[in-house]
């Protein structure tokens, strides 16, 4: 299945996207507030990225963008749908880039020996 460096890169990116999506999930369930469950606070503090999350959660522009979209409750859910939109679209572009070389015509029959 893994045939070369490209496949390893794809695997790393896929696992990365999955990990980030899962990390963002509790953030959205807590209502996009910047508060995290203890385990996530511990993880974000450990890696020093808690400031980024805190900034995202209290960013007035971002919150007003979500609120202006008429979402009344569970703002985090809607914010997460925007995040997933970004992830999924990026994945689609990645698939297109990786699959581009398969676009060539492959109807030439193999010669029997």
């Amino acid at each position: 299945m893994i045939k070369g460096p490209k496949d390893i890169l794809i695997l790393i990116l896929a696992l990365g996207a999955l990990a980030v999506s899962i990390v963002f999930l509790p953030w959205s369930e807590l209502g996009f507030t910047g508060n995290f469950p203890d385990w996530l606070s511990a993880v974000t503090n450990y890696f020093g990225v808690n400031k980024i999350f805190a900034e995202l959660g209290t960013n007035k522009d971002l919150i007003s963008l979500v609120k202006s979209s008429d979402a009344q409750h569970n703002l985090g859910d809607y914010a997460y749908s925007l995040f997933l939109f970004g992830v999924i679209t990026a994945s689609a572009i990645a698939i297109v880039l990786v699959g581009k070389e398969d676009n060539a015509e492959k109807t030439v029959l193999e010669v029997k020996k």
């Binding site: 979209s69 008429d70 009344q72 809607y78 749908s81 925007l82 999924i88 679209t89 994945s91």
Partner: peptide
């Protein structure tokens, strides 16, 4: 993927 992405964007923009 793109079509699901667009659905999610629509859900965000016009809940």
């Amino acid at each position: 993927f793109v079509l699901v992405g667009i659905l999610l964007l629509a859900v965000f923009l016009v809940p």
